[in-house]
Amino acid sequence: MKRIQIMLFALCCALLSNAQTEKFNGLDMNLGNLSRLSDAKTRSISPENFTGEKGKGALADPAADKGKRNVANAADAARDLGKGWKVNPFIIIEPGETFTMADIEGPGAIQHIWMTPTGNFNFTIFRIYYDNEETPSVESPVGPFFGTAWTQVSWLNSLAITVNPGSAFNSYWKMPFRKKCKITMQNLDSQPMRLYYQIDYTLTEVGADEGYFHAQYRRSARDPKSSLHTIVDNIKGKGQYVGTFMGVGVSNNGWWGEGEIKFFMDGDKENATIVGTGTEDYFCGSYNFENKRTKQYEEFSTAYAGLHQVLRPDGVYGSQQRFGMYRWHIMDPIRFENDLKVTIQDLGWRSGGRYLPQHSDIITVAYWYQREPHARFPKLPVVDDLEVN
């Protein structure tokens, strides 16, 4: 009997291996399958190759193209070296301008995005459109999308997002598309901004079960009428929720993170199906994120969750505590069939051991995958309401 069980186990492993081989197309990569070959094509877009076409990189000529904006922005620095020597490593986006970073014909998937923008991270709007859709599937100020809510860079080390010295934003979220993918950056500031960027992608078949990546920004800026922040709502269709970034600017002196997160899915009305037990608990910490030895908040940054931003008052202009934290549902996606709404309570403590409904400045970005079409996003706040002050 034991010999038969071993044979059956080996047969199952062989069948599973064959199934994985048939499905593998270069879209899903990890350490376990990096050695498996694929017919997928690797491409990359940067200011040195705006289209990502094969053999079309580093064509700018510092002698011929000098003075042409976004064609040879470093022509003067490369004047002694000539063509092929870092002639156009960045682009400039003027005030009010929207720049198309990528316009890719599919099928394929974005696999990595690196950028280092200058200027106000809350006034620079990052958008992604799939398959010729009219409204974006990703829309957020660039800072919050990359876990930076308060314009101050803090290092973030996770599987999905990294923020590295000196101000390098990286996304490893997989973003499949079937027909087309367009990525834009809009500068709402009154000053020009400089942007270095690279978008790494693959051209390959996309399976029928692949959803589209979405991300949406929300802000409750010390709303005096409510102590409930909506992270996202009106998600319609089949999909799975995969992450939350939240920035909190507190407005009181006590512990601020008692609020529960709630996931209303597939027809839930008053009562949610998934309810957390507190803010620090949802972000995979406990007991106020406090280091019991130092009696201070303890920053941490892990593969799936972290409190990577603890911005302490400086006694002058930085008078308020501000925090940034993330929770990626990479190993535990929250799946929904028809609809999803996510909220979090804004609760602290008051005298007598009672909860305090707060009015904090809360910034969030929700990340999820779903089938298209998606419901139209709420209109982004105006510039004054995007500003951190």
Rank of each mutant, 00 (worst) to 15 (best):
A14C: 14
T230L: 00
K269W: 00
W173F: 15
G207N: 12
V382L: 13
K262V: 01
G285I: 03
D200T: 05
N187F: 11
R376M: 12
T279N: 09
R354S: 09
C13V: 14
A40T: 06
I4K: 15
A60Y: 04
W85P: 02
R322I: 00
K23E: 12
Q152F: 07
A72S: 08
E258R: 11
S351V: 11
E258K: 09
K379M: 11
K174Y: 01
E210Q: 15
T184K: 02
V365D: 08
Y129P: 00
I45D: 03
L37K: 15
T135N: 10
H112L: 11
F99G: 00
N338T: 14
E387T: 11
G247Y: 00
A160P: 00
W150M: 05
F146G: 04
D131S: 07
P89W: 02
C181Y: 04
A168S: 13
W255D: 07
T244I: 14
G166R: 11
I231P: 00
Q5F: 12
K295H: 10
Q5K: 13
P107M: 07
E290A: 11
A109G: 10
I45N: 03
G26A: 09
I344F: 01
T204S: 09
F245S: 09
W85A: 02
G257T: 03
A221K: 15
N288G: 12
I199M: 12
A221C: 09
N18H: 11
M7E: 15
T42F: 13
L34V: 15
A303L: 14
S35F: 10
H308F: 04
K41F: 00
K341V: 06
D361S: 12
G237K: 03
V153C: 01
E298Q: 15
T230M: 10
R322G: 01
P176T: 03
T135C: 01
Q186K: 15
R322Q: 12
E258L: 13
A14K: 09
K292L: 13
A272I: 01
Y355P: 10
D189F: 02
F24T: 08
S319W: 10
S167H: 11
G106Y: 03
V250C: 04
G32C: 11
A215R: 07
F50L: 14
G239L: 06
H329C: 09
F323Q: 00
F264S: 02
E134A: 14
G249N: 04
N253Y: 08
T364Y: 08
S35C: 02
M193I: 15
G257V: 01
D332S: 13
D384M: 05
A64P: 00
N33W: 07
R335Y: 08
P378Q: 06
V138N: 06
F245L: 07
P62Y: 00
P381R: 09
G267I: 03
K86I: 07
H329Y: 12
Q20D: 10
G243Q: 01
R36L: 14
F99C: 05
D332W: 07
V275T: 15
I274Q: 02
D209V: 01
W155I: 11
G348D: 06
A74M: 05
S220T: 12
E139K: 08
K179L: 07
I235D: 04
I344W: 08
K83Y: 01
P141N: 08
A72T: 03
A272G: 07
K68A: 09
N122H: 06
V250G: 03
G237D: 08
T279Q: 13
N291V: 04
